[in-house]
Design a protein around this nucleic acid. Structure first.
Lengths: 193, 193
DNA sequence: CGGTTATTTCAGTATTTTCTGAAATATACG
DNA sequence: CGTATATTTCAGAAAATACTGAAATAACCG
């Protein structure tokens, strides 16, 4: 089963891209194929279309399911499992925020917290802890931001991200509204205007 | 040369984490070591401390430099190159936004734009293009957001990220201020209040 | 149940990536 | 320059990862 060139380019690019990221070529290609397919596909079809062994596809699908990036569908009158990707592309952003939190952020934060509890035995260790504290605070801030991304529904999420460069202005407005005249925040807003 | 256990745990964790990400163990460990070190280190020291071959360290440092995550320093009276990481941890966020744009976002966007120019030869391709359009728009939005992250100085960047869940409220305020009564944005703000 | 079809597991192989040591190149200093 | 020291390159070894085919398991159906 072969793909139209348009789809093939997309699928191949995703395979390459995936491997720069933690994901491997197979998984990237499977995702891309499911993403553009007009209907759910079964493992056999994927295997034939991409030219991977059936077992490789099985493992790839498992991986994608564990990331919630592939969803199993049952088609009436067919007992094979069929797969799609979430329909709302913005769900990808939420899902990745969720999964990266679990797999990368949480373990790192708890490692850092543990190390920050220990008392430094030397100046060298004291300095190291200081740096770890900075990194801990950074990651914690990102973690909270991710939490918000996960919470927001698509419309608001787009709004938040589109806000972008305008954030400066919006923050000023916020400062003016929520701070007493002459307060620090008010002053900052004026300086950065 | 051996590390205090505190530092060792940190360095090892970063090595593991790195490998979940595109980066390899060596590079992750070198970065972590430089990050907590109280002064710039030379390649020899890194090599001895981490137990990697001198040439491996050389390659790792090159990689880190290409990401702007390691900076070369010249120490007076010593002709060996010494290395540090950027002092402001928040620079990491900006740097990663910059580099990921170059390496991942830009190539993907141009691939998508190219494919979106072609005229679909079938219903299947038409649908695929529709999906690609959605992904294109998503990535473009993220790209713009990243651009803003790169632009903002630390103070404002932290403010932007901390804003988080409060964004809803702030957006409402913005809507009320910048939209004529009865306009669409005003209406949205009320509905989502 | 027994047969059929679908899926997963897994041991072994193939491929890719990482890492090393030796040689080549570059840089500094007298 | 010539010598000493620092760094990079690179071919091959080692390690890690991805992939396959065969066999095991599971799910369905008559």
């Amino acid at each position: 089963m072969d793909m139209p060139p348009l789809i093939q380019s997309f699928v191949l690019h995703f395979g390459e891209m995936g491997s720069r990221w933690g994901i491997n070529r197979t998984v990237g290609q499977i995702y891309a194929l499911l993403f553009v397919a007009p209907r759910p596909l079964n493992a056999e079809e994927i295997s034939e279309t991409l030219g991977f062994s059936r077992s490789n596809v099985s493992m790839g699908l498992k991986e994608l399911q564990s990331w919630n990036l592939a969803l199993m569908k049952h088609m009436p009158g067919d007992r094979r499992d069929h797969f799609t990707t979430p329909g709302d592309v913005w769900a990808i952003v939420r899902i990745l925020a969720e999964e990266r939190k679990k797999r990368e952020i949480d373990p790192t934060l708890s490692m850092l917290r543990e190390l920050l509890m220990q008392s430094p035995g030397s100046e060298e260790e004291r300095h190291a802890q200081e740096r770890m504290r900075e990194m801990h605070d950074l990651i914690e801030t990102l973690d909270n931001w991710y939490a918000d991304v996960r919470r927001l529904e698509t419309e608001r999420l787009i709004q938040l991200l589109t806000l972008g460069s305008k954030v400066q202005k919006v923050l000023e407005v916020k400062d003016r509204l929520f701070t007493l005249p002459g307060g620090r925040a008010r002053k900052d807003a004026e300086e950065n205007g």
